[in-house]
């Protein structure tokens, strides 16, 4: 299953009165069905906030978000969950410490009234490269990479079309990151999934994404194709600085 995403004039303000902070003044971008779209920018620039708005973890935003041409806010909750799922950075914090993997995976199946729980859970485990026997493990019995696989399995079990990935490998060692990025790339290819992926690593963007947006203080400075990274073809000063620093950091200057 695949879906397009269209965001127009997304804006959000936290707080009220004199303490109000406009975190996203007005963000617009579109993601094609099956595309991997990156969001980069300095910490605090609003990347996670964009994902939280699209997943409706935050609801106080204004603007327009469309999935496959349909208004996000008008989709019934259940349908929305079967279209959009999110994976967070911290595989420690995002799994309930006292829930087994089985409980974690069964909950969305139960809520959505799906049949064949056992079969779906087993297939999800195999899909993310975990032994089926791990269904009976608890988070503390899993490594960081294994926890992130469980988080991905949980996101996939409702067969969504759009995955929102918030720094899914930032907390992982490079060798484990490689496994998770390979898994995400394979799933996208096999299922035609659409990804929006927040990362601070432009090498990850270059490896995974088709296009990416560079954010600064809540605004998109520039949207670029991945091909613009190696030769730093950005035109906005901040986007140029970010790509330039990333190239320097890799020792390519």
């Amino acid at each position: 299953m695949t879906a397009s995403l269209e965001i127009r004039d997304l804006s959000i303000t936290f707080g009220e009165g004199p303490d109000a902070v406009k975190v996203l003044p007005s963000v617009s971008f579109s993601v094609a069905p099956g595309e991997c779209f990156g969001l980069v920018g300095e910490s605090g620039s609003g990347k996670s906030t964009v994902l939280r708005c699209v997943s409706l973890l935050t609801t106080i935003w204004s603007g327009e978000v469309k999935i496959d041409g349909r208004d996000l806010r008008e989709l019934p909750l259940k349908q929305r969950c079967r279209l959009i799922q999110m994976v967070f950075q911290d595989p420690y914090g995002s799994l309930h410490p006292r829930q087994s993997v089985r409980t974690t995976l069964a909950e969305p199946l139960r809520i959505h009234g799906l049949d064949d729980h056992e079969g779906r859970m087993k297939r999800a485990m195999i899909e993310v490269g975990l032994p089926v026997g791990f269904l009976d493990r608890f988070p503390h019995q899993l490594s960081g990479g294994q926890r992130q696989r469980v988080a991905i399995a949980r996101a996939l079990i409702l067969e969504p079309a759009l995955l929102l990935l918030d720094e899914p490998t930032s907390a992982l060692d490079v060798s484990v990151q490689a496994e998770i990025l390979n898994l995400l790339a394979r799933l996208r290819e096999e299922r035609g999934l659409t990804y929006v992926m927040v990362t601070h690593d432009l090498a990850v963007v270059d490896h995974m994404c088709d296009r990416f947006a560079v954010m600064l203080r809540g605004e998109i400075t520039e949207i670029l194709p991945r091909e613009a990274i190696p030769g730093n073809q950005a035109t906005h000063p901040y986007a140029r600085e970010l790509i330039g620093a990333s190239l320097d950091y890799e020792g390519r200057a």
């Binding site: 490079v174 090498a203 270059d206 995974m208 890799e250």
Partner: peptide, 20 residues
């Protein structure tokens, strides 16, 4: 060598990354 190969690189090939 495994760590180096697992690291995505700007301008690198888009093949699956080597795993340790």
């Amino acid at each position: 060598r495994g760590l180096l190969a697992a690291q995505p690189r700007i301008g690198g090939p888009r093949k699956p990354l080597a795993v340790l």
